[in-house]
Simulated scan of single mutants.
Amino acid sequence: MSEEIKVWGIHTYDDNLFLKENVIAIGWNEMGDLSLIEKDREAFKAKYTEVYKDAKKGSIPTCAGMLYRFVNEAKVGDYVVFPSKSNREVNIGQITGEYRYDAEEHDYVQKRDVKWFKHFKRTFFSQGALYEIGAAQSFFLVKNYADEFLSALEKDFKNSFDKELAENDVIAETADEIEQATRDYVLKALFTNFKGYPLENFVANLLEAMGYKTTVSKQGGDNGIDIIAYKDELPPRILVQVKSQNKDISETVVQSFKGAMLNGDYGLFVTLSDYTPNAKIFLEKNPIIKGINGYELVDLIIKYYDKLNEKYQKVIPLKRVYIPVSV
């Protein structure tokens, strides 16, 4: 692929707009005419923050970056890949016009003219290529499989579905990327929505989903014990401490938690971050305490997601899907 020519991916809810009017477009109507913003990423972030005052901090660079790329980085002559949902096809075209603001449009006011070349059934492309254009962002750069989409425009392009069966390593790598993206999303949702005491109640509900009986301590804690859990009516008792801080948990903090335990107790320390090296060594030497870091907590959430309280599922909305794996 030429270094100058790029391949972009885009999503929309209005397939007809794209295919019948020969355009690609994005929304964010409140941003107005994007050509009036200085051609600088920081300027786009500043404008986005000004317009969307309630936007989550982590979403600002992502959304502002998409807008900036659509206006300033995508060039006439670049290619665009658009997976249409209405007919389950992959449409490939080329950008033919500079950015323009369409004030008369209701939803998608930020536009670029395109010429659509070909329309393919999804099975013409490898699974990895389909995963890449299934990105969560509205407008994004196609990197890993750009050459495959460009090759589709050649006369001798052949259906690559059969070849895909031999691409187990690519499939596995792509599946891992999807799983990691999901884990990142869940961890960010925990940091955003469950700071402090709310995380204690969430962890208690997760433990109940795992089959434990729990009691959450009153706010203020009970000697550092946030939750008391039992597998059934009989011992052992499991004492749980929960931390939602960004900073890694030190050995001193874990030692203090152990000091609150009585003979016969087991401990569970849950953090959204991780443990310092010394804290990990301490946990290894004291196996009666199980330390769970942020990603380990996420793995448990995904495993027992269907049994979580509905109010928590609404905060962390996930859908069970099946993806191919290498065998």
Rank of each mutant, 00 (worst) to 15 (best):
D265I: 02
R237H: 02
Y312N: 04
I316Q: 03
G294M: 03
P324N: 08
S256M: 12
E310G: 03
G294V: 06
E284A: 15
E251F: 15
D306H: 11
D299I: 07
G267C: 08
D265H: 09
K307G: 00
N246K: 15
Y304S: 03
T276P: 09
S244Y: 03
I316L: 08
E233W: 02
R320V: 15
D274Q: 10
E233A: 13
L234I: 04
S244C: 09
P324A: 11
M261P: 03
L283D: 10
K303S: 10
N246S: 14
Y275S: 10
E284T: 14
V240Q: 00
F282H: 10
I301P: 10
Q241P: 00
K280V: 08
D265P: 08
K231E: 03
Q241S: 09
N309Q: 09
K314L: 15
G267H: 04
G291V: 09
K285E: 12
R320I: 12
I292A: 01
P324Q: 07
T252S: 14
R320L: 15
T252Q: 14
F269S: 02
T252G: 14
K231I: 05
V253M: 12
A279Q: 05
I289K: 10
K280M: 13
Y322K: 15
K285C: 11
E296Y: 02
D248E: 11
F257T: 00
P235R: 11
K314N: 15
V321M: 04
Y322C: 01
I281N: 14
N246D: 11
N293G: 07
V315Y: 01
N246P: 01
L234V: 05
V270L: 07
V242S: 01
K285L: 12
S256Y: 04
K311W: 01
K243S: 13
A279H: 10
K258M: 14
Q255C: 09
Y312P: 03
L308D: 07
N263C: 01
A279N: 05
F269V: 05
N293V: 08
S256K: 14
D306C: 03
I323P: 07
G291I: 08
V270Y: 02
E251I: 05
D248N: 13
I249L: 10
E251H: 15
V321S: 01
P277Q: 08
K247Y: 03
L234S: 12
F257A: 04
N309T: 01
K243D: 06
R320H: 11
I301F: 05
T276Q: 07
K303Y: 10
F269R: 08
T271A: 14
L234P: 01
L239W: 01
V242C: 02
I289N: 04
